[in-house]
Design a protein around this nucleic acid. Structure first.
Lengths: 180, 180
DNA sequence: CTTACCATGTAAGGCGTTACATGATTCA
DNA sequence: TGAATCATGTAACGCCTTACATGGTAAG
């Protein structure tokens, strides 16, 4: 079956906004998409080759003094495929937090160790929240420049609300563990 | 390398609380752990066999008039392994929401379609929130019965705060899309 | 009497990661 | 001149899911 949780629609979606190399795609996944998606070169390059073979993207070798570099752009068939995926209802949203697993089994570890896990989680979330808030500011200011900015901003706001919820829980969880 | 995001510690953790069959383990994963973890029989049974071979769990065939059923219990070596994993810092918390991917690339789909995705997400989160709040009530009332209940309750509260954050975002996102 | 649930397991394959391999260019 | 970044790709392997295969038991 087609494109359920795969790299291909991510690539198609990114190329729908601008032409990119495989390296560029990796960078975008690691920045704008990183808080809800991930992907490695070992997945990006083979997918790009497959998409090209299916004529969903077009490869252009960049010539001249530059090193070997290939820029990809989306084709009409690619846009059609992207839209078809966008129209289909979401199949699966997955939250998979190892932190919660360690908490769930935490009685074996005890309070101090568990609190350490929560605090490490808290530090991590706080940092990511700051990054998202910086994104939020930039995107809000540049909202008129590009109609896609609105959609990017909405996902950023998702991260902000979610992380705020996480931080609220951190406080609650720590006080629950300490008041025993 | 050992037990980074694997079924084995989940099983060890569950068996640390009570003896269970493979079928029981699946049920627990699909209920108490479902909002932050998942696993299938195709992963549970082979892992159980491997854990038994490593003497981390012990298998007891249930005899008598009952059907073929095997109950597993954790061994001392198993407890040690579980504790070792609990002590190690969390390697990876992963949030992977297809909904956000569809939102991120949403300009191609347009406002109406995007709002439909948000509303489907909203319905789903609302339902799960209700389930978690039911769990919260039960666990709060039974807090004294078992020292582990406190740890279960903390993870449930995580889900509640997170889902509340999600729902807050749903409202925000819809109004952002409508006010254009 | 049949539907739902209890119960165990295997085989094939999907999807992706990590690690490796290689080399150019830019910047301090 | 050496570190960081740009840039592409492959091979091996890990981990899990889906689908299949099988059959007992409880409840309505």
């Amino acid at each position: 079956m087609a494109t359920e949780k795969k790299m291909d629609v991510v690539i198609l979606g990114l190329l729908n906004h601008s032409d990119l190399s495989g390296y560029d795609i990796k960078k975008q996944i690691d920045s704008a998409l990183s808080f809800f998606w991930s992907g490695s070169y070992g997945s990006i390059y083979p997918t790009l080759a497959k998409l090209e073979a299916d004529k969903l993207v077009k490869k252009k070798e960049v010539k001249g003094s530059e090193r070997n570099k290939a820029m990809y752009s989306i084709t009409k068939a690619g846009k059609k495929q992207l839209l078809a995926w966008l129209e289909v209802p979401v199949i699966k949203d997955e939250l998979r937090y190892e932190t919660l697993l360690k908490l769930f089994f935490g009685s074996e570890l005890g309070e101090d160790g568990t609190i350490e896990h929560i605090e490490a989680f808290e530090r991590n979330v706080s940092e990511n929240l700051k990054l998202l808030q910086a994104y939020e500011k930039i995107l809000t200011e540049a909202l008129d420049e590009d109609p896609e900015h609105k959609y990017f901003l909405i996902t950023v706001k998702f991260g902000i609300e979610t992380y705020k919820g996480h931080l609220k829980w951190c406080k609650e969880a720590k006080s629950m563990l300490k008041n025993m």
